[in-house]
Amino acid sequence: MRLFQRKGNDLIRQPADLIPCDTFISDPPLRYTKPHRQPELDNEQQVIYHAVLQHFSDPQLRLPVNGHAEDLQDSNNYSTLGDWEKFWLSRECILRYLRATAWNAEQTIRRLHNTLLWRRQFGLADYANLKETATSVANENDTGKISLLGYDRKSQLVLILKNGRQNTDPSFEQIRQIVWFLEAASILAPKGTECWTLIIDLKNHHIDNGGTRSLYEYPPLSLAKQVINIFQDHYPERLYKCLICNVPNSAWTFLKLVYPLIEPEPRKKILYNDPLEIHIESDQLGAEYGGRLDFNYDNSIYWPDLIQTVESRKKVQYEKFEALGANVGIREFEIKRNT
């Protein structure tokens, strides 16, 4: 029988020295390298960056209020950038878009426009709503299908998606939940990092679900498509690695279907059934993946704590942002607090 067993199974054994943990780990371990600034831009890049910055710094820049670009000509339907939008339009953010478009200023502006419009539609233009969103999608996370836990070896956040813990029907709420997590992750990302590692766990956890089984063993393709689109369009250059683990045989069909929807660049970042220890140290990794964190998801503990952390970080960062002038293009590095 050993012949047919997957190698991955060997790795999952319970280490003796478990670290109890039931909340979000607020800071990466100190032993990781100090946060470093991004390398400075060369002259050419500088010019392009400033062109983009110039565009968004223009106080006359007006975008449709409800995010629908083709909406009426009525000027009441347009408004200038809000403070939180300026907060979001940091130097790093613009650079991410520039990198995603291979330093094409025009394309960058268009994509940033699209994202700004989408954020207005989605209600992300104002971070004040973030907490409400969190409470309204709380039941989506009853089983902990998405969690932020630990840091990888580059002290980047680890976002874990557990497909097997799906507890609700596919709906708009699920997208809201994911988007909330992505926003939270961008706020919580430690100083000097802007990417995160994504673990997608395809193991069937239905036993944890109280015996309830879903007809959708994997998310419907359309939903997957929409999430992938949001991720690619509105969160470019955010993914460091996507680790897909515990892939059952039946999941390959789903993965094969999704694969062509992913752009070639992020496709390279996807790793299947890769040992997680390579990317994440064992004290930052859940025991179920062979790490030492004894993390059992409890929504009543984890969720309020996470909201709290996000809110407090948000507040601190915003204060710093105001202190720095509340403009477009402020460095996230300076806004974020030291660990």
Partner: peptide
């Protein structure tokens, strides 16, 4: 999302096409 799932059963639509459904009626999808 529901529209996407419905259309998925009918055929293959790009996300732009799905958005067009809403734009046609002057609605905001997201």
């Amino acid at each position: 999302v529901e529209l996407g799932m419905l259309l998925e059963q009918i055929g293959q639509f790009t996300s732009n096409e799905i958005n067009e459904f809403f734009h046609f009626y002057n609605k905001v999808p997201w």
